[in-house]
Write a protein that binds this DNA or RNA. Structure first.
Lengths: 212, 212, 212, 212
DNA sequence: GGATAATCGAGACGGTACGTCTCGTCTTCTG
DNA sequence: CAGAAGACGAGACGTACCGTCTCGATTATCC
């Protein structure tokens, strides 16, 4: 099925300047970190990147989309560094001990959420996504859902191993420990720490009601 | 003796026009609902309210603050209508059946979150709060925390009744069912329904691991 | 008859800032003199005048109109200085000697045309007027025609005195010595000097054909 | 020996595409006629001519120069059609009756000035020439002066025949009837017609003063 | 007639200015 | 003197062209 709405006329992507593209990513991330999202302007990004404004408008429809791609690029790069080969599917560790595995992954997430390199642009994108339908969808689809899917996979493995009740829906179950962390981080409704995420895992796995 | 350091010179609140104030609230909420938060401008609010721009800038530091106050006003009014007397402390119902009580309250919350009168301004404020420190703090303090405190109280009562393990921290426990709902609503990461919130309560109370 | 096409909605002229208006005139004339008309930009005028761009666009539809008004203002001021009271009707001198009177006035015109304070903006406006209908009309109506009317009056007086043939149309007659000067100045088709204008008057009054 | 200081490196004129050159001329003239000079852009000319922008910039320094050459080409073509062989010297008719000859030529000029095919580009070039030194010089030298020289020649012949006073300078004399027409056309300071130019010739030849 | 070199159409690029929009301040007049 | 009205300095918006700079793909001579 061909593109249903060919906005203006597509520029020739094969002739695109990779130098400019990278400079724009760098400038966008730097500016968001330095002055915050609302004070980051397309004009500012262009000036900082040493690029004409039209070069931005040629390839991205809005400031939010620039930042989204820049952040996706940053995530991909840093995932490549930390993890395995590019393109290779990731998976949560599976040592057989579900609680320990989840705690370990959440501790890494805590580290990432507290890293200022990620924090400012991620928060800015999340905020924009709440209000801007299209950005929100892309943010969720490209960044959030792939992460959540890893938890689904790990929880299903745990179900196979009899460590999780078979009637539990993994897609909902993962929210018991992921969403609280997300909300505390996004809305500053509480401190986030290893202790906190460990506790979340314990509560989620074993429930609040007495086992008696 | 006059104010010794008159920063801007404080306006005389006693002479404030209540007509204008209410018109500004109404205009702000109407505009956010109609055109969305980013396209809502101070100028637009003033024009719609039949008010000079300076009358807004005299009493509020920014667009976000206007909307925040307008929304607080709306919440107070609607709480007054629905609930009890103004100023009176609210509490979650306590029928002795913790699961049923929580499910009931969350179902009411689902209704509220899906009411478009609340949805647009609430989402806009939440988004602004992610990025604007001061708005975020006030949003959490004035709207979110009071609600959460009701859950803390109810959970503590359940602990007293032996329905919740005594070592559980209620402030964290409530996040197991509140945060997932919040995230799905804010970030559109999934549908929200009575079934969903019922499931969250069940999972949270009895855990994911088999009871065996 | 009221204004037939109220473009946007008229700004309130009574509240107009005279400081800004004068600063804009000064900046416009200075810039045209310094960098020429095509390189004079609205943005540049605003910056030099210490004024927002919108203040220019609020009161003038285009760069050409700004410059036209600035030049009219300059002309009015300098006429006031040199000549009599403002608003008073001017007239060419009438000593009874038509040739001498015309030569005197044209010599003064030569001086003016060679004064760089006038030359650059006048030439720029004339050029714009050739191509921009509306500017051209206003340029002619407000600057050129009033001057030419003075010649018409003087020539009619000469006709009454029997110094010019009665069947001659003064409006055409004046072009015999005014237009050649104008063309040489505008298009650099020849040098302009007292000698030249004196000669033009002689040729025009007494014709090219032998009198015998 | 190659060019010792190759400024840009001169393009090889022998390999120039005549197809492109003619297409550019046509496009330039058509655009000026359709949308006016200021809205005629190099990009527009290139697009309309089906030509790369660089092909224009390779051979002409500016939009004005393109139009100037295009117009010269048009003039040459139309002169060739109407007049004699290319390269042959033109001359004004000489029937012995100076007044009649001049009136005839001026009537033809009136026709040309009112032909819209010539009017728009000619006016545009004249306007540009007022402000752009180099274009102005070339416009005058290549288009205006050759025409004026014809009048000089005819007037000199008339002097030899005793129909014009011998002390009259023909280069100035011709301006008495040519410049008024030029100014009325350029600046719309009055209507142009056969009557008008006939009158100019009469006034110029026999003067304004009574012959007594 | 095949090699080779420059012109060609195309269009991305770094820039500048456009004319519009909204910001938050300042000013003027009205109730 | 608070408030409505709105002009003001400021500056970002998204667009249009500028003139320069690659890109292959034709030409069009020269060997």
């Amino acid at each position: 099925m061909p593109d249903p709405q060919p906005r203006k006329q597509a520029p020739d992507a094969t002739r695109r300047s990779q130098r400019s593209r990278q400079a724009i990513y760098d400038a966008a991330l730097a500016l968001v970190a330095e002055v915050g999202y609302p004070k980051t302007t397309v004009e500012g990004i262009a000036a900082r990147a040493g690029v004409g404004k039209q070069t931005i408008y040629r390839w991205w429809p809005s400031k939010a989309d620039v930042l989204l791609e820049a952040f996706l690029d940053l995530s991909a790069q840093s995932a490549e560094q930390a993890g395995a080969q590019p393109g290779e599917p990731y998976a949560l560790p599976d040592t057989g001990d579900l609680a320990a595995d989840l705690k370990g992954v959440l501790r890494a997430t805590v580290d990432e959420l507290l890293d200022p390199r990620f924090e400012t642009p991620a928060r800015a994108l999340a905020a924009e996504g709440l209000v801007n339908e299209q950005v929100g969808r892309e943010f969720v689809a490209k960044l959030l859902e792939p992460q959540l899917q890893l938890y689904v996979d790990r929880l299903r493995a745990a179900q196979d191993a009899g460590q999780v009740r078979p009637e539990v829906d993994p897609r909902i179950a993962l929210e018991l420990f992921v969403s609280p962390l997300a909300q505390r981080w996004l809305q500053h409704t509480g401190p986030i720490s290893y202790d906190y995420t460990d506790t979340l895992v314990d509560y989620a796995l074993y429930g609040l009601a007495p086992r008696a």
